[in-house]
């Protein structure tokens, strides 16, 4: 089988080190003037694609991001890491607030078909909304096999051997290409973009599109009623004996009485 054409999704999210603050009107969290970076699971997806290309198993890496103009910074980072070209599907303001995995997966599926890609690598979830839906939905729309939560991926003559992280441990599966893979934390350790590659990334092609270019209707299917802080942790209690502890746990309904 010839080298693969790979599509990688790169979401721009609030940086993992930022302490997220809920807006007083409970419509969402503060994003203005807040440090953003590439979703860490997408960085892992990028790294996996680049390693495939370095081994000559992939021929081209296309990176895509859906969101406001600032997503282009994230795409430039992806290009500096080793992507070949970028597609920015611009979605702004209110529309972006209502953008759901359902919409993004339709856009990704359309791009995957247009670009004739063999492999779609996505992060298993984004660290902002933690949906963990986009990869699965995209596979469903394309009717391609999916290999989610990958911690090892090997290309094997038109198929992928994927080691998956599942609740009970690890699972080995084989999927036929084309396929959708979503990355788990232990798949690889992403590289830093080097300074020379940052300079070269400026010259790599970045195309801007709109959801309507892919005939995707992004009108919201769900409404966010309220975004709230998790409850503040309350002070604990000291107990005198094991019996008392068991009693308290029983009273709280935490163990079967």
């Amino acid at each position: 089988m010839s080298a693969l054409r790979v599509l990688v999704g790169c979401k721009r999210v609030i940086d993992y080190a930022v302490r997220v603050r809920v807006k007083p009107d409970k419509t969402g969290v503060f994003t203005d003037g807040v440090k953003h970076s590439m979703n860490p699971f997408d960085e892992i997806a990028m790294e996996e694609a680049i390693r495939m290309k370095e081994k000559k198993l992939a021929s081209e890496i296309i990176v895509v991001s859906c969101g406001p103009i600032q997503c282009q910074e994230t795409l430039r980072t992806a290009l500096a890491m080793g992507g070949d070209r970028a597609i920015h599907v611009q979605v702004d303001g209110k529309e972006y607030e209502g953008l759901q995995p359902f919409h993004v997966s339709k856009i990704l599926a359309k791009i995957a078909q247009e670009e004739k890609v063999d492999l779609l690598i996505l992060g298993k979830q984004a660290i902002d909304d933690d949906c963990n839906q986009t990869g699965q939905m995209t596979a469903a729309i394309l009717d391609w096999p999916q290999a989610t939560f990958a911690s090892k991926v090997e290309i094997d003559n038109g198929s992928l051997k994927v080691l998956r992280e599942i609740d009970g441990g690890l699972e080995n599966i084989k999927v036929k290409l084309p396929a959708v893979v979503t990355t788990d934390l232990r798949l690889n350790e992403p590289r830093y973009a080097t300074l020379p590659n940052i300079m070269k990334a400026k010259k790599k092609p970045l195309t801007t599109k709109k959801p309507s270019d892919y005939a995707v209707d992004i009108s919201p299917r769900q409404e966010v009623l309220s975004v709230e802080d998790p409850p503040v942790r309350e002070a604990g209690q000291k107990v005198e004996s094991v019996e008392q502890l068991v009693q308290k746990l029983r009273d709280a309904g935490l163990i079967v009485s």
Binding site: D15, A17, V18, R19, D32, G33, V34, K35, S37, E73, R76, T77, A80, Y192, A193, T194, L195, I198, M199, A201, K202
Partner: peptide
């Protein structure tokens, strides 16, 4: 380093930098 409140504050070291310089700084 570069904690949440720095971004957009008056001591933000990215102030006045080009996009490319910001990328270099981020690395």
């Amino acid at each position: 380093i570069g904690d949440s409140w720095i971004n957009g504050s008056c001591i933000d070291p990215t102030l006045g930098l080009s996009d490319e310089q910001k990328q270099i700084q981020k690395v």
